[in-house]
């Protein structure tokens, strides 16, 4: 497989607080995304997980080119996109090739647009379709998403949650994108309809040859849909690898706590220390300390003075922890006390 999307040491910093013109302390920055490298292959689904504030959403906005990077490169189909300013990219041909499905379609679709209009909007703007060609494309997208044509005249509030989710997806696939970024596409749905939407996404991926970046905090859903998973903590990737393996045997202590915290229907508990406390401040963090240090059940003094790099553990697995791989017995000691 070849990479469709490749991120190379991507970083994004936002200035915070008041800028000081006359010397004094330097401008403080929030390091929202820090030194992130990842690839998405053609036809692959990559899950992006982490707590709120870990930089998932910023990373997604960088990939969809709604935000400009501070550092790093973004290659999409061998073209460097990071150098194209977001404002210019809005009228770029590749805009249609990277589309996004937003969290709650009830909130993200213009309430004064009918379903047909909502699906037609990006087709008009990005592909310049008009008239019959537009209608045909809208109906095709709706059909692919299992939206009956009699619903196309309805407004969002006249649709059920599941139908709205389908509109959001139809809107995104209308332009025939190659990469679809899904931001918690089922978070607003009841489990009874969640399954249908997940199955729809799986089918579309196969039928249309799409690649997905799937952002979610529901690890059970990520496990169902994703080939690979990327775990973020405070702007950095702490672990990545094949989804099934990462969840079955996490290498990083943060991933381990995350997996252990997910409620399970079978009532079985994965033993791991609870994560207490809050993440440290993302404002100008110590570049020489592990971001997880202080909250980590394993952490030793070395973690406060030496940032662990993302190391290759073979089989496509990576983790950024000094103790990953040799830590099994160490964790057991921690959790048993």
């Amino acid at each position: 497989m070849t990479a469709l999307l490749e991120l190379e040491n991507v970083g994004k910093r936002f200035p915070v607080g008041r800028r000081r013109f006359f010397g004094g302390t330097p401008q403080p920055h929030v390091h929202a995304v820090d030194d992130v490298s990842l690839t998405v292959d053609r036809g692959e689904t990559v899950g992006l997980v982490g707590e709120s504030g870990c930089g998932k959403s910023t990373l997604v906005r960088l990939i969809t080119r709604l935000l400009d990077v501070t550092t790093g490169k973004i290659w999409f189909d061998r073209r460097e996109l990071a150098e194209v300013p977001a404002r210019v990219f809005a009228r770029d041909d590749d805009r249609a090739h990277i589309q996004m499905v937003f969290q709650d379609a009830g909130e993200s679709i213009n309430p004064r647009f009918t379903a047909a209009n909502a699906i037609a909007d990006p087709l008009r703007r990005l592909l310049g379709l008009r008239g019959e060609a537009l209608t045909a494309r809208v109906e095709e997208a709706a059909l692919q998403c299992g939206l009956p044509s009699e619903l196309l005249g309805r407004f969002p509030h006249q649709l059920s949650g599941g139908q709205r989710a389908r509109v959001g997806i139809a809107r995104a696939i209308g332009t025939r994108p190659r990469l679809l970024v899904l931001d918690e596409p089922t978070a607003a749905l009841d489990v009874s309809v969640q399954v249908t939407v997940l199955k729809l996404l799986q089918r579309l991926k196969a039928d249309l040859g799409l690649s997905y970046i799937f952002v979610s905090h529901d690890l059970n859903v990520v496990r169902l849909l994703c080939d690979r998973v990327v775990v973020m903590y405070l702007g950095r990737i702490v672990e990545s690898g094949p989804a099934a393996e990462v969840f079955a045997a996490p290498l990083h202590p943060y991933t381990r706590s995350l997996v252990a915290a997910v409620p399970r229907l079978d009532g079985e508990r994965v033993e791991a220390a609870r994560l207490t406390g809050e993440p440290r401040s993302p404002i100008d963090p110590d570049p020489n300390a592990c971001r997880f240090h202080g909250r980590c059940p394993v952490g030793v003094a070395r973690c406060g003075t030496e940032m662990p790099p993302l190391r290759d553990f073979g089989g496509g697995r990576f983790a950024a922890c000094h103790f990953a791989g040799q830590a099994g017995d160490r964790w057991d000691k921690v959790t048993s006390t």
């Binding site: 489990v191 009874s192 309809v193 969640q194 399954v195 249908t196 496990r223 169902l224 997910v262």
Partner: peptide, 20 residues
């Protein structure tokens, strides 16, 4: 029973789930 069958679990695939 339907609700249980629709709830994603730690094991199992998407095909093993069904909606209500």
């Amino acid at each position: 029973a339907r609700l249980i069958a629709a709830t994603p679990t730690a094991a199992g695939s998407l095909d093993s789930l069904s909606s209500v």
